[in-house]
Amino acid sequence: MRSPFAVLDRLDERRLGLVLVIPAIVLMLIVAAYPVLSAVWMSLHRYNVKVPQDYAFIGFSNYARILASRTWWTAMETTVGFAVLSVTCEFFLGLVMALVMNRALGKATGAVRVAVLVPWATITVVTALAWKWIFTPTFTFGALNWVMGLFAEESCVLCGRWTSILAMVFADTWKTAPFIALLLLAGLQSIDGEMYEAADVDGASKWTQFTRITVPALKPAILVALLFRSLDSLRMFDLAYVMTNGANDTKTTSMLSYDYLIRRLDMGVGSAMSVLVFVTVLIVAFIFVRVLGAAPEGADKVKKPKRARRSAELESVTDAMGRAQIA
């Protein structure tokens, strides 16, 4: 009897490769493309699950309603404010941590790497709850009392808008600075030590070495770290949900879409909000790869055709991602 796979034997390598990835592509379409497209489709409708009979195509009305509302722009302000502040803090703190780990630790790095990842590996809801308690000194939970001493009994960090946002930035930095540090550490360790030796011979100062060797060589890792964190923080939900539940205009855009999708079961408006969050994230990702993801120094001199340069950028990004995974 002929095997059902016999037909594969007649294909050449390239076609065969394509055939073999078809199941994976189908899977990707099911789990990634379908939900996105269906959200876009739903966002063009008036559709509340509570009243399923009232379902109608209404074009971009949901978007118009959202973009005209003050609530949406307040949430956007909160989200972007949080993202900018948290990514900045995390990046610089992470960079310092990476530099220290690279220089000072030698053989202990393995153990330190694991230790440093503990905050990052803790579930965000758990850390958010812990920080909420710490920032609210009136709570008494035995073990945390000594930490609470750090904050004045009368202060109320989570009572105001920007103090709440800063508290979230603080919690987020605590959690993810180590992650950035590890990404950057992987980058640092791949820099050839001979470059520094050569620079020493040439009499370059440490600062010059840092700006001329370390930073350019680290660029792909920096790009990946910033990209990951920016996208993550623009979708931030859990910290705000747990720490303030959106009080004092601290709702993020993700929380707002959650409100509509889950609490009000309004699939139309909720989906439109999700699509807007998606588009925001997409724009930021595009800016990162396009504007910041310029080719390494020296590469511009050899005027490579645009396509080749782009693929070189992508290569360096994927390279750094791979290294981050290994790390």
Binding site: T136, P137, T138, F139, T140, E154, C156, L158, C159, T244, A247
Partner: peptide
């Protein structure tokens, strides 16, 4: 207290039972 603006039932109870 200003912090009452973040209080739910249990928060109030804990403050009260602490003698606060």
């Amino acid at each position: 207290p200003k912090v009452v603006t973040t209080f739910m039932e249990e928060d109030s109870r804990l403050a009260f039972q602490k003698g606060d």
